[in-house]
Amino acid sequence: MNVIKFELLKLRSKSRGWLGPILVFILIMVAFPLTVEISNKDLDQSFFAVLWIAILLVMMLSTEDIFLEDFNDGSLEQFAISNISLPYIIAAKIFIYWLLIGVPISIIGSLFCLGLTNSANLAINILPILLITSYIFINVFSFGNALSLNKGSALGTLVTLPLLLPLMIVLGKTVISINLNLNYLGFVALLLGILSTIILLIPLIISYIIRAHLE
């Protein structure tokens, strides 16, 4: 529990780390209908594509220094030799980032969905999908950031980007199912399956990568 308290304190004091990505997300979502001159119906169709891409980019942005600061100031060294297991600390860090960035973005995304599609049913159904998706994105991008930890470049994150393309296809199919009033729970179950695998594996893999960087 201490790790979670420490992370919350750090992010509370460093508000640009979580407020910045949320503001960027709002800006993208506000700018989207303003920058295209198409009918309301067309706006509906392209909304979800913009929503998924916006979340993808914002999650990429938000995890930029998830480990970098701790690596530079020596905190990761202390974590690595502490009694608490490193994968647990990493999982806690990712969870806090999701809580402070992923959850607000999911709620805001759902509200934008309500505003642009005028469908409360769609907005409510899309919320759990947004929550699951943002958690998957944040995990995968954290892995990417760990890869390029001491390089100071976004290369690691870009390398992990193709891993998320199949997920984008699933997300597209899920929205189509919701729009056509088809049973979309299978897609949600698939997303949950991906998430449960990822939250177990990614912290473990990241801990090995970080230990390699600390050598």
Binding site: L9, D73, I81, N83
Partner: peptide
């Protein structure tokens, strides 16, 4: 027990107060 290690890096947060850093250090 665990090892106490103090290296070249202080593992302190520049943007936190002294008290908050002591909290982070537990």
């Amino acid at each position: 027990k665990r090892i106490c290690f103090l290296g070249h890096k202080n593992a302190l947060k520049q943007y936190l107060t002294v008290e908050e850093n002591l909290f982070v250090l537990d």
